[in-house]
């Protein structure tokens, strides 16, 4: 059978259609955020006249004053979210890398069963334990503490899996053995020799853990009742309430402030993030 070349005109049309669809989807991704950023700089009066604007106006400062002048301080939410996300990321990456190392570098009896166990809990739905978790934390007085939001990250089966796959390819046992000959302890070897090897994989996973923790709403909403402990997503949820009723400029500004840091992180690291999504998907 010989290949029939598609007619040239047909090719051009199909190519045009592809570009039109892709550009349309790209606009669909950007537009809501664009409208949001623009309206954050416009007065409520302007927004009520026409709520779609492609260019910024000059009311950013007055919107900020309205936004900031209410009963809560958004910077507190920002600070709390940073603290929780940073510590969550640190314990998550460190301890799960350690677990992955245990699975790769040592021959122990329960190694294979333990790995099967990790695969089994990989898809455990998190929300079904929330009532028991809340009651447990309430009993030991850990509501309004950041610890129940941070410490569970020590057991992250997805990260263990990813790190294990990476270590299987990147770790040579000879390096570990030569460290042993030099008299290094196992723990020292992990911290000083293995961790640096894992840096690229750790960076990828760190981005996802950080963003996941930053965006988390359910658990903080349940556990944190004191408004000085509120995280960013809880602060955002207050924008719906009565405080800002008709102050659209301030609402858009508040939303923009929560999106801005994510945009900066995302566009700076998008190459690694896209690669990370692709890598994380290959589970065989």
């Amino acid at each position: 059978m010989s290949r029939k070349p598609e007619p040239l005109a047909g090719r051009a049309i199909s190519k045009t259609i592809k570009y039109i669809v892709c550009i349309f989807l790209a606009i669909l991704s950007i537009m809501p955020f664009w409208i949001m950023f623009m309206n954050a700089t416009r007065s409520t009066y302007e927004i009520q006249a026409t709520s779609i604007a492609l260019l910024p106006s000059t009311y950013l400062e007055s919107n900020w004053k309205v936004f900031h002048g209410k009963s809560f301080n958004p910077l507190v939410g920002f600070k709390n979210s940073v603290i929780i996300a940073v510590f969550t990321t640190i314990v998550n990456i460190y301890f799960n890398s350690l677990t992955a190392y245990a699975l790769v570098a040592y021959q122990w009896k329960l190694r294979q069963p333990f790995f099967s166990f990790i695969m089994a809990i990989l898809m455990l739905p998190a929300q079904v334990s929330s009532i028991g978790f809340y009651q447990f934390m309430y009993r030991i007085g850990w509501t309004n503490s950041f610890l129940p939001l941070i410490l569970p990250a020590i057991a992250g089966p997805g990260v263990v899996f990813f790190m294990r796959q990476y270590l299987l390819g990147a770790l040579s046992i000879d390096i570990v053995n030569s460290a042993r000959i030099d008299g290094a302890g196992e723990f020292y070897t992990f911290n000083r020799i293995v961790l640096p090897i894992m840096k690229p994989a750790m960076a990828t996973q760190a981005i996802f853990t950080f963003v996941g923790s930053w965006n988390n709403l359910f658990m903080p909403l349940i556990l944190l009742t004191d408004n000085k402990n509120y995280t960013m997503p809880i602060m955002v949820s207050l924008l719906r309430g009565d405080i800002y009723r008709r102050e659209y400029g301030a609402i858009y500004l508040g939303l923009s402030l929560t999106v801005l840091p994510l945009f900066i992180v995302y566009f700076a690291l998008s190459k690694y993030i896209i690669a990370g999504v692709a890598l994380g998907s290959i589970k065989e």
């Binding site: 991704s29 719906r240 939303l255 929560t258 999106v259 994510l262 995302y266 998008s270 993030i273 999504v277």
Partner: peptide
Amino acid sequence: KVLFYMPNIITAATIAIL
């Protein structure tokens, strides 16, 4: 790819209210 994936990393709470 970067633009299609973008909404995924934005806080869902923000997107809901937006």
